[in-house]
Computed example of a mutant assay.
Amino acid sequence: MLLKGLFDKIASLGGLLVLWPVLLICAILIRLKMPGGPIIFKQQRVGQYGKLFTMYKFRSMTVVHDGSYISVAGESRITPLGAKLRKYKLDELPELWNVLIGNMSFVGPRPDVPGYADKLEGEDRDVLKLKPGITGPASLKYRNEEELLAVQDDPKRYNDEVIFPDKVRINLEYLNTWSFWRDIKIIIYTVLSKDLD
């Protein structure tokens, strides 16, 4: 895991240096198209060993809404610009800062909002040994999660009873079979939007 941590530091710094024009353009577009709110969306998420940290993303929703923490494609709270940012995962670019400062890794389980970690029991809690990631095997499988939830009669129930347990299973397998080269493969497959073998 030492190699993983070293890679995270170097790659996140390199990513921020190379992608700063994209970050700037996204920030300008959010300011112009979505005025009246912050450019960066900040939220408390559950990190490694269950410790809370602040995750940074580009804002993709209206400032005032009464939606849940489950995002569904086509929701009115997601702005037209926000939908494009989310489609191409540009809203997640600020998470490179989280990786640089050590709250997150490039590859790992997506960080949940507080409450979901409390549902983990037994060996399922081992997933908290991992730093949350920008991408991961579960993220690849459910990269169209918002579209999948949009066709469910009860998106929250489907997430809680089907998607969340499956993600825990996938993340436990990732923990138990981790290798640096598999991390690289996951990153490449994420960029190419391919399913993991």
Score class of each variant (00 low, 15 high):
Thr79Trp: 04
Lys119Arg: 15
Gln43Ala: 15
Pro94Leu: 11
His65Asp: 08
Phe164Lys: 09
Asp66Lys: 13
Val162Phe: 06
Tyr69Gln: 13
Val127Leu: 15
Pro137Tyr: 01
Thr54Lys: 15
Glu95Arg: 12
Glu147Trp: 02
Phe58Pro: 03
Pro80Asp: 06
Lys119Gly: 04
Val113Gln: 01
Val72Ala: 09
Ser71Trp: 12
Gly102Ile: 07
Gly133Trp: 02
Ser71Asp: 14
Asp154Gly: 12
Arg143Glu: 07
Gly50Trp: 08
Tyr158Gly: 03
Lys129Thr: 02
Asn159Ile: 06
Ser71Asn: 15
Glu145Ile: 02
Arg59Thr: 13
Phe164Ser: 01
Thr62Tyr: 01
Arg169Tyr: 12
Lys141Trp: 01
Gln43Val: 14
Ala150Lys: 13
Arg157Lys: 14
Gln48Pro: 00
Val46Arg: 00
Ala117Arg: 02
Ile170Val: 15
Pro94Gln: 03
Arg110Ser: 05
Gly47Lys: 02
Glu145Arg: 02
Asp160Cys: 08
Asp153Met: 02
Lys42Ile: 10
Glu145Ser: 00
Tyr69Cys: 05
Ala117Leu: 06
Leu120Arg: 08
Asn103Tyr: 14
Val63Pro: 07
Ile101Glu: 11
Thr135Trp: 03
Glu161Asn: 09
Glu147Ile: 06
Met55Glu: 02
Thr135Glu: 02
Asn144Trp: 01
Gly67Glu: 03
Asp126Tyr: 14
Tyr116Glu: 00
Ile170Gly: 11
Leu149Glu: 12
Pro155Asn: 05
Lys89Ile: 00
Lys87Phe: 12
Glu147Ala: 13
Gly133Glu: 08
Gly67Ser: 08
Leu96Lys: 04
Ala117Gln: 15
Leu52Glu: 05
Leu81His: 05
Ile78Lys: 04
Ala138Phe: 07
Gln43Gly: 13
Pro111Cys: 10
Glu75Met: 11
Phe164Ala: 05
Phe58Glu: 11
Glu146Gln: 14
Leu120Glu: 00
His65Gly: 09
Val127Pro: 06
Pro114Ala: 11
Leu85Cys: 07
Gly67Ala: 13
Ile170Ser: 07
Gln44Glu: 15
Glu146Tyr: 09
Arg77Gln: 07
Arg157His: 02
Pro111Arg: 02
Val46Glu: 01
Ser60Arg: 01
Ser71Val: 11
Pro155Asp: 02
Tyr142Gln: 05
Glu147Gln: 15
Phe53Asn: 06
Lys119Ile: 03
Lys87Asp: 12
Asn98Asp: 14
Ser105Gln: 06
Asn98Met: 05
Tyr88Pro: 00
Pro109Trp: 10
Leu149Phe: 12
Gly67Val: 08
Ala83Tyr: 07
Pro155Met: 05
Leu130Ile: 14
Leu81Met: 07
Asp118His: 06
Asp66Trp: 03
Gly115Gln: 10
Lys131Tyr: 08
Asn159Gly: 04
